[in-house]
């Protein structure tokens, strides 16, 4: 049996239009052999979760640079629980202070990458975490 490819949804929740990071990461993950779906801009939490479930992804990567991370991450974690889809790993990237990273990890967010994080770091994190869970 061939190894199943890791499937990632890269998502931009809310009104934030800063998409450089999301697009760079989407390409980097794809080049690393993952299957990547990018939502495009202005997604509600519900839209993101619907896509994640429909596309049967292993992980959702949320890119938020607008400061609304304490709104969107908890909303998505809660909705995943309600839809019984907690097996989907949630990680993220953006302008997020350390204190907030700690509280987001407490509610089950896997990892948050801040400006300067390398693609390699993110790729390794995903490969390791998703493989471990299998």
């Amino acid at each position: 049996m061939t190894e199943k490819k890791i499937r990632i949804l890269v998502a931009k929740p809310g009104l934030d239009g800063h998409d450089r990071g999301a697009k760079v990461i989407a390409r980097a993950l794809r080049d690393a052999g993952m299957e990547v779906i990018y939502t495009g801009l202005r997604q509600t939490s519900e839209m993101i979760i619907n896509t994640a479930i429909q596309e049967d992804v292993d992980a959702i990567g949320l890119s938020i640079l607008s400061g609304a991370h304490m709104h969107y991450f908890p909303e998505i974690m809660q909705a995943l629980k309600e839809r019984k889809a907690e097996d989907i790993l949630v990680f993220g990237g953006g302008i997020v202070p350390d204190e907030d990273i700690t509280s987001l990890k407490e509610i089950g967010v896997g990892e948050i990458f801040t400006p300067g994080a390398s693609s390699q770091e993110i790729i390794e994190y995903l490969k390791e975490t998703i493989r471990k869970e299998d």
């Binding site: 809310g14 009104l15 607008s66 400061g67 609304a68 304490m70 709104h71 969107y72 909303e75």
Partner: peptide
């Protein structure tokens, strides 16, 4: 606007 008011 929820979660975004006054943020950036």
């Amino acid at each position: 606007s929820r979660g975004e008011v006054g943020k950036c």
